[in-house]
């Protein structure tokens, strides 16, 4: 059964068609990733789904309830983690959570239990009395998530919840979200980091210029680029003769040189690697070798000719 159905969503800001007909469905218990570069229309899509922006067209149905007809019921089912840290800096983490819990109609014992559970989930129970403004970026992000969990939403919508934090905090957050999903919570996760989406999500929509340009499971998406891997090489000296020789190797599809790096595209990286190293060491020293499995970054590049991140 679908937790959320989004159909033909559209929103323009003047002549800028920020969201131009976005449709997707997320099944109950699924973790759905919305992957796209900055300005692709992820946040606008999320704001439309939450009813924070008036839509120009389209429908949103959550748990069988139409957003335009019964927004209160929809909002009760949804937890929202905004892209920005939407907390009151001068209040403590607990005070913030009390406020956000009350916004969802929680009170009394139930509120306190939810707060304890949410703090437990994000691992900040021992720091709850401190003011948000004294927190590190990563801790703020964690409370930002905790605030969305208090009313035990069926659907958790997270808009780039890891922007601008250290790798350790990011891993903590990713693990937390994975845990929530494992316990049955449906997740929509937007990001421009393909690693996050690959780690968390079972299905992904790739969004660009306000449109979903590809959608499917990770495997389905990788199939778009035919499961090709890339080998990146850095040599002490590059001669164009090396490139010619590499191109001659069997099963090597493409050899390019970019920014001092040689990029080899192949469907069989393990098979060609010995021949590649042999050709290279003949004329120069190999400074580094990297093997890139087919990933969403490559898919995006393939579809748009641009990188996910600039």
């Amino acid at each position: 059964m679908s937790m959320i159905v989004v159909k033909d969503l559209a929103k323009s800001f003047g002549t800028n068609h920020a969201v131009a007909g976005v449709s997707f469905q997320v099944a109950e218990g699924e973790a759905y990733g919305l992957l796209g570069p900055n300005g692709a229309g992820k946040s606008t899509t999320i704001n439309l789904v939450l009813g924070l922006l008036g839509m120009d067209g389209g429908t949103v149905t959550v748990g069988g309830q139409d957003l335009s007809r019964n927004s209160a019921a929809v909002k009760r089912m949804v937890g929202f983690v905004p892209q920005e840290i939407a907390l009151y800096p001068s209040l403590s983490a607990r005070e913030n959570l009390v406020f956000w819990g009350r916004m969802y109609g929680l009170g009394g014992e139930r509120l306190h239990q939810s707060i304890a559970r949410a703090l437990e989930t994000v691992g900040l129970a021992d720091r709850a009395k401190e003011r948000i403004e004294t927190y590190s970026g990563g801790m703020k992000r964690r409370i930002n998530i905790a605030a969305a969990l208090l009313h035990e939403p069926k659907l958790l919508i997270m808009d780039e919840p890891t922007v601008g934090i250290d790798p350790q905090s990011r891993n903590h957050i990713l693990e937390t979200v994975k845990g929530l999903n494992a316990r049955g919570m449906t997740i929509i996760y937007t990001s421009h980091y393909m690693e996050e989406v690959e780690f968390l999500c079972t299905r992904v929509g790739i969004i660009d210029h306000g449109k979903i340009i590809a959608e499917g499971t990770l495997d389905e998406l990788r199939r778009i680029i035919g499961h090709r891997s890339r080998i990146r090489l850095r040599l002490s000296s590059n001669g164009h003769r090396v490139l010619e020789r590499l191109r001659a190797i069997k099963e090597v599809e493409k050899v390019e040189e970019a920014a001092g790096e040689i990029v080899i595209t192949t469907a069989n990286p393990a098979g060609v690697l010995p021949a590649v190293t042999a050709e290279c060491t003949e004329n120069a020293r190999i400074q580094s070798v990297a093997l890139e499995e087919p990933n969403l970054e490559a898919v995006f590049l393939h579809l748009t000719g641009r990188a996910l991140r600039d």
Partner: peptide
Amino acid sequence: DQRTMGRILAAPG
């Protein structure tokens, strides 16, 4: 600016 307004409006009400 703090986007807390969006969050308040994302709650029922």
